[in-house]
Design a protein around this nucleic acid. Structure first.
Length: 331
DNA sequence: TAACCGTGGCA
DNA sequence: TTGCCAAGGTT
């Protein structure tokens, strides 16, 4: 790394730039900054417009503002010398526990263990830790474990090594367990929990959708529609579907508008709610309601297909179950 | 504690 | 193409 052995200022700069940022993406920015501001005082004395301009395109712009502010704090309160204790480093704006430990260990050889996303993953898997990493309890537990494991003689090397291992070997997806030096003792590997560890408390936010299906049928015919486009169930068939943005019943007016979009005219029948189902998909929570109406005679030839033919199509699980149940109750 | 902050690589 | 998510920290 170009900041290796270049002092605390260079290490700090690199850590802030690389927060939540890939090395390849951050590297050009580090080079620009270290060239434009060779010392912390150069950075502190620079106009904020210049700092923001150099940061442009890197994202998370509060990092640049905090960086500039911290440089001025170092100039004004630390005599222009980068602080050399963990607590003092941590007190600077924009520096949290991770960055403070990284700078303390890399620049000053202080025994503070870093805990970043890589460390959570490596330790969580090897030790089989189920505690959620986004909980207060989990953060304490992982920090304590990392502090215990840290080699106090070579804290910088230890920290760099564990992060590197996480980034290149114990990766989030498709980790190289077959060639992993820990695969004889890794709890997650031995118990097939590699995919589920480390565990996060916050569940993926499921998008809630409200889908309404209408069973338009005569004795012999029914209307089904193929799913097209990028949405769920592509290529499968469903009953004609109306989606609403909130949790309420579809009213006559909703269906009227829907029929219009379908180009269906002449419908006069009564609509009745005949069923409700919920289904959980990987990223969607579906609330499905089923309605029924008699198919107008004019629809049969135009839009309907024979029920025998409809039986040969593929349907989403819940739709198929509904149709099966309906068929059973009718006969 | 939870929401928010930006961008680019990748499956 | 869309959504995940990557060397976190602040409010």
């Amino acid at each position: 790394m170009p900041w290796h052995g270049q002092g605390a200022y260079a290490v700090w700069l690199s850590e802030i730039i690389l927060q939540q940022t890939r090395f390849e993406q951050g590297l050009p920015y580090y080079l620009k900054f270290i060239e434009s501001f060779p010392s912390v005082n150069d950075l502190a004395n620079a106009p904020s417009e210049r700092v923001m301009q150099l940061w442009q395109g890197l994202g998370y712009y509060s990092r640049a503002r905090n960086l500039h502010k911290a440089a001025q704090t170092i100039r004004d309160e630390f005599g222009g010398v980068f602080p050399n204790t963990y607590e003092a480093i941590l007190s600077l704006t924009g520096i949290g526990p991770y960055s403070a430990a990284a700078i303390a260990s890399f620049a000053f050889g202080l025994p503070h263990a870093v805990v970043d996303g890589n460390v959570y993953r490596v330790l969580g898997r090897i030790y089989g830790i189920e505690t959620a990493i986004d909980s207060t309890k989990g953060k304490k537990e992982f920090q304590a474990l990392a502090d215990t494991l840290l080699d106090p003689k070579l804290p910088g090397d230890f920290n760099q090594a564990i992060m590197n291992f996480g980034a290149t070997h114990c990766t989030p997806q498709q980790p190289k367990c077959e060639t992993c030096p820990f695969n004889k003792e890794c709890s997650a590997y031995l118990t097939e929990r590699v995919q589920t560890l480390p565990y996060k408390e916050k569940k993926i936010k499921l998008k809630q959708r409200f889908l309404h299906f209408i069973l338009l049928e005569s004795d012999s015919h029914i209307i089904v529609q193929e799913r097209r486009g990028k949405d769920i169930w592509q290529g499968l068939y469903t009953l004609p579907m109306l989606e609403l943005s909130d949790d309420r019943l579809a009213l006559d007016n909703d269906w009227k508008g829907f029929f219009k979009t379908q180009g269906w005219t002449g419908f006069r029948g009564e609509l009745a709610l005949i069923g409700e189902e919920s289904q959980l998909l990987s990223h969607q929570k579906l609330k499905m309601r089923f309605y029924r109406a008699a198919m107008p005679d004019t629809f049969v030839g135009q839009y309907g297909i024979a029920k025998e033919q409809a039986a040969s199509y593929g349907y989403p699980k819940t739709i198929a179950a509904f149709l099966q149940k309906k068929k059973g109750s009718a006969s």
